[in-house]
Design a protein around this nucleic acid. Sequence first.
DNA 1: ATACTATGAATGAAAG
DNA 2: CTTTCATTCATAGTAT
Lengths: 171, 171
Amino acid sequence: MEEGMSDFCIQAKGLTGDNGRKCGRWNPTAEQVKILTDLFRSGLRTPTTDQIQKISSQLSFYGKIESKNVFYWFQNHKARERQKRRRVSKQKSIIQLEVPTKYFDEISQAPMEPDRVIETLQLFPLNSYNEADSAEKLRMMANECKENTTFSYAMGKEIDHPPLDLCLSFF
Amino acid sequence: MEEGMSDFCIQAKGLTGDNGRKCGRWNPTAEQVKILTDLFRSGLRTPTTDQIQKISSQLSFYGKIESKNVFYWFQNHKARERQKRRRVSKQKSIIQLEVPTKYFDEISQAPMEPDRVIETLQLFPLNSYNEADSAEKLRMMANECKENTTFSYAMGKEIDHPPLDLCLSFF
DNA sequence: ATACTATGAATGAAAG
DNA sequence: CTTTCATTCATAGTAT
């Protein structure tokens, strides 16, 4: 029964750009979020423990992060996308009969791509990607490489660091 | 280095002229707030998705509103009440050391009804309410009416519109 | 203008 | 997985 009010840790979140980010919980950096989002958009929904480990490891380059953060991130992101969709779906309003084009759901300012939940999507390194220009070929490769699937990710050029490669091994 | 970037309200606004102007966030009308507050005081704390849908739908009569607004409203209202209560109780605990129990109430100046968090409270029309004068009976009725629980609400006379009835159907 | 306040919105963490 | 809690960010409204 401890509601540990936690610490004070005044966060001077000013517009000055000087962010002495909060201490208590994980504060993802823009890069971390971008990568995670990218992986998500690529179809990753429920990463395995190994994947989480790898991702976390890679993202630690951009700032402090733990495995559980990655775990929670995907869990939350997935849940909220569903929740959002669910909430938007049944818009059987009774009263809005007279307002034909009034409701564009602001809830989703994002295109909200279809439900292509590819649990185990694979992105191969570019060099080997050339060989696979068809989905079928890709699938074949995926089969071959079952024990070492790679999520390849290239960061924007603005940041001065080597491109990121997430090598996620499945067993 | 755009840290404070708020990734919402990126609504398409400029293109169609600036008549949009209101793109930001939902600002509830007085009627909407009153109804929501009433539902809250009635014991509603965490409406289900269906309830949210219905409430939102009904409230849209008084102005633009979405499901998520209702969701957030209850979320925030509950959280802030709890937060307030927590602060008060903490004060109490400090003073408790030397002040007899009978004086506690003076310390909490807020009305703040007890923790009767009736997750699924039902308000029946007065006529049928007479029959149910016990909590048990009420519960039985609730069971019977499982597919059509009614939150009955009558607006103040100031506004020129019919009384509002929130019919929340459970399935 | 500037500071403050109330509150809508978002999300990390965790409970169920 | 779904739902809830807590804490924080952002901003409209308002007071100073």
